[in-house]
Every structure is written in structure tokens, then in C-alpha cells.
């Protein structure tokens, strides 16, 4: 495993939409911004099960998963994602998120192993910089 600075390839990210939530504006905007910042971005499309997301993440050999949830199901879906990644021995994939998530829930999710939650109003540059600083590229 190497740091981003010495990596021989760009960071690979899966932007995912889980559950029944149809809000994809944020996910698509972030996906494009990350791509424009030189990252390799795969977008799952809407309405994925956590199983599908984990499978796609492993198949695509991504370094991190950005999960977007605006349906209020974050306290179910984030823990489920972490659990299934662990079961597949893929817990080295960094999980971060974005969406409508109240402050108390953000704290609980960070404690559970989600590495960052971005709320509405986040500058896309902040997401890019956070990934550069926190997501190691798997070699």
C-alpha cells in the first residue's frame, strides 16, 4: 500500500446510491468533480442493494466508496455496508458519505467506521482534498 503522492495510478472511487432513494443530483455532481480532479470514478446508478455495492467495489478494485443517502436510511445502510465489507475482507476500502445527515448521526457513523460525512453546502474541492489526504491507493 502506498500513499497518494507516490501512487502509480489515480485513486479509484465507487460513487454509490443505496436503497430506494432517488436523489442523485449530489452523487452525480460529486462524481463529475472527482473525475475532473483526475480520479477514476465509477457510478453505480440508483437503487442498489448494499450487496451490489460491495460486489462492484471488489470487482472494480476501488480504493474507496462514497455512499450518498438523502432518504434518512443512513443509520441502516452505512453500518450494513461496513459489515458486508468486513465479511468480504475488504475493510481496507475507505467508506465516506454524503447527504442529509443530522449532526448526532454523523458522530455515531464516524464512531462506527465511516471516515467522513459531507453535508449539503460542501465545496467539491474539500471532497477532492479530503480524498487525496485520506484515501491510500492500493497497489
Amino acid at each position: 500500500m502506498m500513499s497518494q503522492g507516490k501512487a502509480t495510478r489515480p485513486v479509484r472511487i465507487l460513487i454509490a446510491k443505496a436503497g430506494l432513494d432517488g436523489h442523485d443530483r449530489g452523487a452525480k455532481v460529486i462524481a463529475r468533480a472527482l473525475r475532473d480532479a483526475g480520479m477514476e470514478v465509477i457510478y453505480t446508478g440508483l437503487h442498489q442493494t448494499v450487496e451490489n455495492i460491495v460486489r462492484a467495489a471488489i470487482q472494480e478494485d476501488v480504493d474507496c466508496i462514497g455512499l450518498s443517502i438523502l432518504s434518512g436510511a443512513h443509520m441502516t445502510l452505512f453500518p450494513e455496508l461496513l459489515k458486508q465489507l468486513k465479511a468480504e475482507k475488504a475493510e481496507d476500502i475507505v467508506v465516506f458519505g454524503g447527504g442529509i445527515v443530522p449532526k448526532d448521526d454523523i458522530e455515531a457513523l464516524l464512531a462506527a467506521g465511516v471516515r467522513q460525512i459531507f453535508i449539503p453546502g460542501t465545496h467539491t474541492k474539500d471532497v477532492v482534498e479530503w480524498i487525496q489526504a485520506n484515501v491510500p491507493v492500493h497497489e
Partner: peptide, 22 residues
């Protein structure tokens, strides 16, 4: 809620975590 909007009853596995939430 999302399950009602997407055609799932509350007891469907697809409704997990979303019943009555939004």
C-alpha cells in the same frame, strides 16, 4: 415513505431502514 413510493410493502427486504423515514 420510500417503500410506498417504490412499490414495496414494509415487510419487503428492499424496504429495510426506510419505512416511515422520509
Amino acid at each position: 415513505d420510500m417503500p410506498s413510493l417504490m412499490g414495496y410493502d414494509p415487510d419487503s427486504p428492499r424496504a429495510l431502514g426506510e419505512v416511515g423515514r422520509e
